[in-house]
Design a binder for these strands. Structure first.
Length: 697
DNA sequence: TACATGGATTTTTTT
DNA sequence: AATCCATGTA
């Protein structure tokens, strides 16, 4: 593009290098789209590893160089990691593009973040004008579940002769209905058919849930989007917010749901100034009501239709790996046509490895990982990916046995651990004695105080004029009196230390530590999490700020038994495929590429679900730069069973690895499998597993 | 009223 | 594996 030859701002210093010089033609088109003064809507279909984040960052930089106000740019993405990546990259490109020195800082982009965090900020800012208490707190999933559980019990739904869905299921149903904007009947029919009989009761429960949230000034994750959307249904607010943001750029568009698409459409009804980036082939969040249709239908949403550009050059993987990936996704029925290509050639093809079972799979991966490290590939540049968190269990055992350090992403979240919830509830309750949920949880930590006692206490507080006095005046059953006094004194002290932060947390910990010892066998491990919490606390100005921000931006995971390795150490990456999105490693191992696992047997119901599982495998494979192994254990243990159970299924190779796909792989197998195969070759070949399964097909 | 026990149920991925 | 719920006991 010739425009680059002319400096954008007059300078006296030596001409700085063109910040966009490294872009390829497709990327350049995306960056300079709409430069003629108009800003028609833009959809960038960015294949895996095609420099998506770089391109989006460069587009932001280009807009700023052309005079756009960074304060008026809205940058949205779905996950926290993508939001951080984007922010960092934009900063770097801008810094370079403006020719700043090491001491100068690039202009900040105050409105960059996840949909949820930006929603929270906007709602707080506009709270008073839209009838919201600006001091609202944000409930994470655990909080929301607990509240539903409480109401579920109060409505007498816990002791019915036929079982009512559990609190987690209730929240899943509610969330699905909100995010997909579908009526409850539809949601139950499609996704939760076993709960269909409870429609009326669920409706009543959700009504109560809404009322209770309003009474407590609490918003859950879904409310952050829903309230934002509702605000934008008012033409006045829609116009005001639409004008406030001159540019709206969205990353990971394939993971947005109907509610999020509605927000974007209300902000930019004609699509002017709207750019979205995504890859329909990598849409893996339908379970959270993400709509592939959002990205597929984006162009024709607008009049005139949005421009569609595709980034097809892949900078990540070797050509043999890409060919295998392309073969997998080629079997997906509906998608934007694109074919990734790479200049990185290599003789090494990806490998399909047959193994006997889970344990052998773990040993194999450990062997391979160490062998690679001998070749100079650090552990950090290798990753093991899997469908669900617990699939790495056997591998983790093996890694621990061999002292191979690793870090696991995905799985149990920090905020979901019981001990973290306990401590945070104590902080919340001390901040607001009327916080029923927090109080209910904390009170029951007192030995001798159960649900009934806790309810009596909280009812007293709720009806009293002076909540603090009511709390202090409470007299529990005699057996609990002494233990209760300790908590009461702790709360009083925390109240007095109200201004002093993080001293209040120290007080809370002093009371909680003995409870932790009493309640949990593995108190030492959990204690480490609490210490991490203590570390974090110092970084926040107040208890309020700490509690508010922790909900939207929590630490990655709870500390493993191995403990988090030091940053300078080398460690292997273990990750769920979902958590691996957007990342890349030199060597990638994908565990359990077996039917029943990929696709997961519970996700094998509908055609859409199968398609999503296929994309999941595609996402996993496209993470690999130089080396890719799909592992296929012949015998795959069923996870839900007693500790010594031996239930397993004779898994076949995943249905996504069709003969056409397999042709792109080299076959390998462990020695034991090889030995079995030789033995089998001299006798009739019989696939009992497939025959047994076919009975039920 | 609190707690222990046993049987049943649900089962993933993230904000 | 974790949670929920009914039942029995102190």
């Amino acid at each position: 593009m010739t425009a680059l030859a002319t400096p954008l701002h007059t300078r006296t210093a030596a001409p700085r290098p063109d910040p966009f010089a490294s872009l390829n033609d497709e990327q350049r088109q995306a960056v300079f789209h709409g430069r003629d003064g108009t800003a028609p809507p833009l959809l960038i279909i960015a294949g895996a590893g095609s420099g998506k984040t770089l391109t989006l960052a460069a587009r932001v930089a280009r807009l700023v160089l052309d005079g756009a106000d960074p304060q008026r740019m809205l940058l949205l993405s779905f996950s926290r990691r993508a939001a951080q990546d984007l922010q960092r990259r934009v900063g770097r490109v801008l810094h370079q593009a403006l020719g700043f020195g090491a001491t100068q800082r690039a202009p900040e982009l105050p409105w960059a973040g996840t949909f949820h965090s930006v929603g929270a900020r906007l709602l707080r800012e506009y709270a008073e004008r839209i009838g919201l208490n600006p001091a609202f707190t944000i409930a994470d999933r655990g909080d929301s579940e607990d509240l539903l559980g409480l109401l579920r019990h109060e409505q007498g739904l816990s002791s019915t002769h036929k079982r009512f869905p559990m609190k987690g299921t209730c929240l899943a149903i509610y969330s699905r209905a909100v995010n997909s904007r579908e009526p409850l009947t539809e949601v139950l029919q499609q996704r939760f058919p076993w709960c269909r009989d409870w429609e009326a009761q669920l409706k009543a429960l959700f009504r109560a849930y809404l009322a209770e949230k309003q009474r407590q000034c609490v918003l859950d994750y879904d409310d952050l989007l829903l309230a934002w959307w509702q605000m934008l249904q008012d033409p006045g607010f829609a116009a005001e917010l639409g004008a406030r943001f001159s540019q709206v750029l969205v990353d990971e568009y394939q993971d947005t749901n109907r509610l999020q698409a509605g927000i974007l459409l209300a902000l930019k009804p004609d699509g002017q100034g709207l750019s979205v980036v995504g890859d329909d082939a990598q849409s893996i969040y339908a379970f959270r009501a993400a709509e592939v249709r959002n990205i597929l239908d984006f162009p024709k949403t607008f009049e005139p239709a949005a421009t569609v550009l595709a980034l097809q050059q892949n900078y990540r993987s070797t050509q043999p790996i890409l060919q295998a990936c392309n073969a997998v996704i080629a079997e997906a029925p509906e998608r934007f046509a694109k074919t990734l290509w790479s200049e990185r050639n290599s003789a090494e093809r990806p490998q399909l490895v047959s193994l006997q079972d889970d344990a052998e799979q773990g040993a194999w991966v450990a062997d391979e990982v160490l062998a690679q490290r001998e070749q100079g590939i650090a552990l950090k540049r290798q990753a093991v990916l899997f469908r669900t968190s617990h699939h790495s269990a056997a591998l983790e055992l093996e890694l621990m046995r061999r002292d191979i350090p690793y870090v696991k992403f995905g799985g149990l979240k920090f905020l979901e651990a019981a001990h973290v919830k306990d401590l945070l509830s104590l902080l919340r309750w001390s901040q607001n004695p009327r916080h029923r949920l927090a109080g209910f949880r904390v009170a029951q930590l007192v030995p001798g105080l159960g649900p009934a006692g806790a309810r009596k206490l909280l009812d007293g507080i709720a009806h009293a004029v002076d909540a603090v006095a009511a709390l202090q005046a409470f007299r529990p059953a005699p057996g609990a009196a002494a233990a209760w006094r300790e908590l009461r004194e702790c709360l009083a002290a925390m109240g007095q230390a109200g201004a002093a932060w993080p001293a209040a947390l120290d007080l809370a910990l002093r009371w909680y530590r003995p409870q932790l010892q009493r309640l949990h066998e593995d108190a030492a491990v959990r204690q480490a999490d609490l210490e991490q919490l203590q570390q974090l606390a110092g970084g926040y100005a107040s208890r309020e700020a700490f509690l508010a921000e922790l909900t939207l931006d929590p630490p990655e995971a709870t500390s493993d038994e191995a403990g988090p390795p030091h940053l300078d150490e080398d460690y292997l990456i273990l990750s769920t495929i979902h958590s691996a999105k957007g990342q890349e490693w030199s060597s990638v191992y994908v565990l359990n590429v077996v039917d029943g696992c990929m696709p997961a047997d519970m996700a094998a119901g509908s055609a859409e679900e199968i398609d999503e599982e296929r994309r999941l495998l595609y996402v996993a494979m496209t993470r690999a730069q130089h080396r890719l192994q799909l592992l296929v254990p012949q015998r795959f243990y069923v996870t839900q069973q007693s500790a010594r159970g031996d239930r397993h299924l004779w898994g076949g190779l995943s249905r996504f690895v069709t003969p056409a796909v397999a042709a792109h792989f080299d076959r390998r197998c462990s020695q034991r499998v090889a030995a079995l195969a030789t033995a089998a070759a001299s006798s009739p070949v019989l696939d009992i597993g497939a025959q047994l399964r076919s009975i039920w097909n």
